[in-house]
């Protein structure tokens, strides 16, 4: 069952296209990673999904309802954590959490207390005294103590320490186990790798890659680490080989999936001593799309595989 869906989403600020055709689809019970550099359109997409911004073109639906027209109805079942949490300096964290939970409708006192304890938050302090991480905790406690069906999290761990990051990851896994859906936008690729079932990569307002991690890896290729008796002088010229690096006396490089056979044949001529293969990490996938293409230039098409 599709919980969240966008089709050809376009958002222009004046003549500047912040979103230029965004298509994503989140299924029930799925953690969906949404990655891309600063200014690529992650937060804009999320704001359109929340009915805070109105899409110039295209469709955004949540629970089968229109994200703009039925915003209030949708929000009763959605919990949201913004990337930059601005709170009211003269209210305490506890007051803000209660207000947020109340505005969504429904309260869960015991869950609130439990999360405050797990995130190690002092709810009696005024928001002006909170650090960025603590403000983030307020938003996270409010989000996870509400009984939502869809969690929209915009870079939720920025400013959290590693311990709290782990608590956050536990919360996401718990929500997932309960059959909730999560849209997680993030910079922290290891986190996305750990949590997400599917990933979409956005660049300059356009989705350039999406699918399960397995699918993405398949598209990209394999990382080989090879140690040979004789040196391989021509390796760089072999078709399908990229990013050669020397590591621990061996060479590490990336091989396109369809050229794997040829490359292994070539390498074997030099007498293989050691050979390890590993799937590319999300970071390597991600970098592949961005390396050599300025993220701010508008004309780049190099990432469209």
């Amino acid at each position: 069952m599709t919980v969240l869906k966008t089709e050809g989403l376009v958002k222009k600020f004046g003549s500047f296209p912040a979103l230029n055709g965004v298509d994503i689809e989140v299924e029930k019970g799925e953690v969906y990673g949404f990655i891309g550099p600063n200014g690529s359109g992650k937060s804009t997409t999320i704001r359109v999904l929340l009915g805070i911004l109105k899409a110039t073109e295209g469709q955004a639906t949540i629970f089968g309802m229109d994200a703009w027209k039925d915003a209030v109805k949708i929000h009763k079942r959605v919990a949201y954590v913004p990337g930059d949490v601005n709170l009211w300096p003269n209210l305490t964290g506890g007051e803000v959490i209660d207000l947020f939970v109340k505005l969504r409708g429904g309260t869960n006192k015991s869950r609130r207390e439990e999360l405050i304890r797990r995130f190690d938050l002092d709810p009696g302090k005024k928001c002006r005294t909170y650090s960025k991480g603590n403000r983030q905790k307020v938003a996270l406690v409010a989000a996870f103590s509400s009984d939502a069906d869809l969690y929209i999290l915009d870079e939720p761990t920025s400013g959290l320490d590693p311990l709290m990051e782990r608590v956050f990851q536990e919360c996401v896994m718990e929500a997932k186990a309960e059959g909730k859906s999560i849209l997680l936008s993030s910079h922290i690729l290891s986190e996305v790798e750990k949590l997400c079932d599917k990933v979409a990569i956005i660049r300059q307002g356009k989705i350039i890659e999406k699918g399960t991690l397995k699918e993405l890896r398949h598209l990209t290729g394999t990382i080989l680490l090879v140690e040979t008796k004789e040196p391989m002088p021509e390796l760089a010229t072999v078709k399908g080989v990229q990013g050669i690096e020397e590591k621990e006396g061996a060479l590490s490089f990336q091989v396109d999936q369809q050229e794997l056979d040829n490359v292994v044949r070539y390498v074997s001529q030099f007498g293989i001593v050691r050979m390890e293969s590993s799937p590319p990490t999300l970071e390597e996938l991600f970098m592949r799309h961005y390396e050599g293409t300025g993220t701010t230039e508008r004309a780049g098409v190099g990432g469209e595989v």
Partner: peptide, 16 residues
């Protein structure tokens, strides 16, 4: 000293 604030919101503070 900073006064400790309320840990929970009063019923008044629960609407726009």
């Amino acid at each position: 000293p900073a006064r400790p604030g309320r840990k929970v919101a009063s019923p008044l503070l629960q609407s726009p």
